[in-house]
Design a protein around this nucleic acid. Structure first.
Lengths: 140, 140
DNA sequence: CAGTATCCGCTGCGATACTG
DNA sequence: CAGTATCGCAGCGGATACTG
């Protein structure tokens, strides 16, 4: 495939650009966590499931399939009993995982500051409208 | 606030860890695109809306509110007519925006390769089950 | 212009049951 | 063990109408 000099670079700010779909799949909570684990080496399905609390089997399958389809994750089936399937990063996946890891690290590193902002924002909102105060404390 | 040496570092792999909520809001398609624009400087509401195709008013408001609450975006209201509201990055937001920009760049840079993988994956699936071939070509 | 409020269809996602 | 298939519903998110 040759480069078409007339074609503009990919631009996710346009609705029809394919990068939109990739961004949708890649900028995802579960993807960040799954790829974060895979950086350490191959993982089996059940290991990933146990390694990420709250991730249902369905969502894990869905996430892994999408990543496999895009060439980010490699799926290797071992013909044995009981069945064994290993997931690992492709070179392409490695580069993405490194990028996403920065995001996970950002969340861990700046969590304190985010919580401070969040608390003061909620407090200010509650004072403006005391009737809303209870909502802030309502379970998720 | 003092550091509690007993408290483990934040860990998004635990279901109840607050970083989960942050990851959920931050690892989001619209957040990536909004913060990508804000890196250039302050933007007005309408400008952001026009700058990101397919982003509805409701989702933009929601996204901006969440980011403001977490101290990532600053909202400045100008008392004039017609009303004018500017959104800009806080220092905290700058650090996040830089991280997310890497993600957007990754998508743009590796789109070709992703598409190649995707096509061959879909083709392989179609050959395994010819009846599914038509589904692959169905509109979104 | 920059929102809020309301309605509501669609689907994302969990729960459950079943298969190779 | 590693999935697929199916059901059911909460909530996401678009469309529309209204407000300061």
């Amino acid at each position: 495939m040759t480069i078409d000099p007339c074609r503009p670079a990919w631009n996710p700010y346009l609705a029809t650009c394919p990068t939109r779909q990739v961004l949708d799949c890649v900028a995802d909570k579960w993807t960040v966590l799954v790829l974060g684990l895979l950086r350490a080496g191959p993982w089996r399905f059940g290991q990933l499931r146990k390694g990420i609390e709250g991730l249902s089997q369905k969502m894990l399958t869905q996430t892994l399939r999408a990543l496999e389809r895009d060439g980010i994750v490699r799926r290797e089936v071992f013909a044995c009993s009981p069945p064994k399937v290993e997931y690992s990063l492709t070179p392409l996946g490695q580069s993405l995982a490194d990028t996403l890891d920065a995001l996970r690290l950002w969340a861990e590193r700046h969590m304190d500051e985010v919580i401070r902002h969040r608390d003061s924002y909620d407090e200010a909102a509650a004072q403006q409208d005391p009737a809303l105060a209870k909502l802030i404390w309502a379970p998720s």
